[in-house]
């Protein structure tokens, strides 16, 4: 490896700083701040989660509307996937 070097700690730190600047500087130089979509929401009245929960506790579904639901998703069952893979 490198033989005796006479670098003092301060020159080392200087070089270290330069190295940091060069690694990150390149990225930062090209950094462009992301522009948000310019649509100003026209006077939306937002509802907080707490307020929504108050609405929810008062929700009432009429009995007439009851129907059979479609089948639940299957994709969360690991064991089944394993079986299909073993074939």
């Amino acid at each position: 490896m490198a033989k005796e070097n006479n670098n003092s700690r301060s020159t080392f730190l200087k070089k270290l700083t330069m190295a940091f600047v060069s690694v990150f500087g390149l990225g930062l130089a090209t950094f462009s701040f992301q522009k948000l979509q310019g649509f100003i929401k026209p006077g939306f009245k937002s509802l907080s989660k707490t307020e929504a929960n108050t609405h929810i506790s008062k929700l009432h579904f009429s009995e007439v509307m009851k129907i059979k639901p479609e089948s639940p998703p299957k994709f969360q069952q690991t064991s089944e996937r394993l079986q299909t893979n073993e074939i």
Partner: peptide, 14 residues
Amino acid sequence: IHYNPELVPEEGHF
């Protein structure tokens, strides 16, 4: 997400 009763909506749920 796996609820599967005879009829929905179920009582006490949304």
